[in-house]
Structure formats: structure tokens, C-alpha cells
């Protein structure tokens, strides 16, 4: 078995230790004897997305996100939408998550069209939501607790037909008001959690990998790993946030 991972826009969307998520997925596949090939697709590269099993899109600075839009408009938007509808797995963090939505209204009221792949909108504000936080995944994503670090000015509100990735236990999540965090659509996982999110949340990581393996091979199982270091780091943050599993 092998997963082909595509890291989209690594040159632009690469803030906050995002590459740790790639390192985590790669190691957890390799430790189980499953192959893993990572391809980086920087801005402006032309490639057929249908050959990949799992896509990773990270977070970026506001300035750099606008640089992306011309590339998305040049056709990549449709390729991403087709892959998502085809049940391919996506992990999209922060700015990469926001890009899946219809658009972004800046704090000054300026509107920016994003991909519109999913029905949600993000509004900028000058008050950033910053800090360690925790949320509980919805049942379709395994139901476990995820710990991470959020740092975003954007407040995201999901359209009525969309399911959030989870429910906030501590911190702000999508907008600091409605208690939702991220989005889950088919095999698309969108979240504000960088940190990076996967190393300290091995069950969440394995759930994402499994979704891609099942999509590709029809069925798959992931052997348990020795997660002592993962769980120690995770437990420390759960205790600090006073959150129980």
C-alpha cells in the first residue's frame, strides 16, 4: 500500500510549523510499512491532481494568500473541487481552510473571492484569536479530543448544510461564538489548529490517513503504534487546559 500526498502551495502556505503535519503522516505510514510519496506543488506549477490520494494545504500570511488567487483562478480551483467531490482526503489548516470557502471580508470591508468549494464565509477582524485550544471531533471524525494552537483574525461561519469538524472545548474555534471548530465535508478536514495539529493527536492523524487508504483500497487497517511521546505531549496540554478525554 502507498499514499501519494500532495502538499499544495508549500512556498506560500507554510506558516506555523505546518510541515510537521507532513512529517507526522509520513512517519506514521512508514512505521507501519506503508509507502508514502510527498509531492510539493508550489504556486504556478501545472500538474494533474487526479493521481494524488491526500492533499495538504497549510496556513499563510494575509499578504501571501492574495498572491494565491490568480493561481486558483487559472484552473486549479476546479481541480481541487473535483478531487474533493471524488472523496479524496484533504487536510486544510487555517488559511488553507479559509480558501475552501466562498470568500473573505477584510476588517476594512473589502471582499475577496476564494474558491467557493464549500459554503462558508470568513470575516476578518483586528482582534486575533490566539492560544492553545481543544475541541471534540464530531462522531464522523472519530469523536476524540484534539489539542492545538489557534492564531487567526478571521471568523468563519459555516453555511447551514455544512458539518463542523468538532465542538470547541477550550478556546475560540471558527468564530469564538457558535462553539464550532473547522469543517468536515466528505473526506475534507478543515481546521484552525496549527501547532502542528497531527503529532500530538495521533488518533486524528490515523483517522485522516485511514480515510485516504479506504478511499484508495476499499478497506484498510492501521496497526497500533507506540505513542508514548505523542500521548505525553498531548496529556500535558489536556491537563493544562483542564480538558478530559
Amino acid at each position: 500500500m502507498e499514499l501519494k500526498i500532495c502538499h499544495l502551495y508549500p512556498d506560500v502556505l507554510n506558516l506555523y510549523g505546518d510541515r510537521g503535519n507532513i512529517a507526522c503522516m509520513r512517519r506514521r505510514l512508514e512505521w507501519r510499512g506503508i509507502g508514502c510519496a510527498v509531492t510539493e506543488l508550489p504556486l504556478g506549477t501545472v500538474d494533474d491532481l487526479t493521481g494524488y490520494d491526500l492533499f495538504f494545504i497549510g496556513g499563510g500570511q494575509d499578504f501571501e494568500q492574495t498572491v494565491l488567487l490568480s493561481d486558483l483562478n487559472a484552473g486549479r480551483r476546479d481541480d481541487i473541487r473535483a478531487a474533493a467531490e471524488d472523496g479524496k482526503t484533504f487536510l486544510c489548516i487555517c488559511g488553507g481552510y479559509q480558501l475552501l470557502g466562498r470568500g473573505y471580508r477584510t476588517a476594512d470591508g473589502e471582499w475577496c473571492d476564494y474558491t467557493g468549494i464549500l459554503d462558508f464565509v470568513t470575516e476578518g477582524s483586528r482582534d486575533r484569536m490566539i492560544g492553545n485550544y481543544a475541541f471534540r471531533l464530531g462522531p464522523e471524525s472519530g469523536g476524540g479530543v484534539v489539542v492545538g494552537f489557534e492564531n487567526h483574525g478571521g471568523r468563519t461561519r459555516l453555511g447551514s448544510g455544512l458539518t463542523p469538524l468538532g465542538a470547541v472545548l477550550k478556546g475560540c474555534g471558527n468564530n469564538g461564538q457558535d462553539g464550532t471548530e473547522g469543517v468536515r465535508y466528505r473526506n475534507v478536514f478543515g481546521t484552525y489548529s496549527h501547532g502542528p495539529v497531527l503529532p500530538k493527536n495521533p488518533a486524528f492523524c490515523d483517522g485522516i490517513l485511514l480515510s485516504a487508504l479506504v478511499r484508495k483500497y476499499g478497506g484498510a487497517e492501521l496497526a497500533p503504534l507506540e505513542d508514548a511521546a505523542e500521548n505525553a505531549a498531548r496529556r500535558y496540554m489536556l491537563n493544562r487546559l483542564h480538558v478530559t478525554e
Binding site: 507554510n14 506555523y16 510549523g17 505546518d18 510541515r19 510537521g20 512529517a23 490566539i130 492560544g131 492553545n132 494552537f149 492564531n151 496549527h194 501547532g195 502542528p196 503529532p199
Partner: peptide, 12 residues
Amino acid sequence: TDVSWIWDADYE
């Protein structure tokens, strides 16, 4: 307060 940067450093 964000320690994510350790994942950007090349310990590998």
C-alpha cells in the same frame, strides 16, 4: 506562547 516553530526548524 506558540511553540509550533520547532517543527519548522530542521532537526531532521
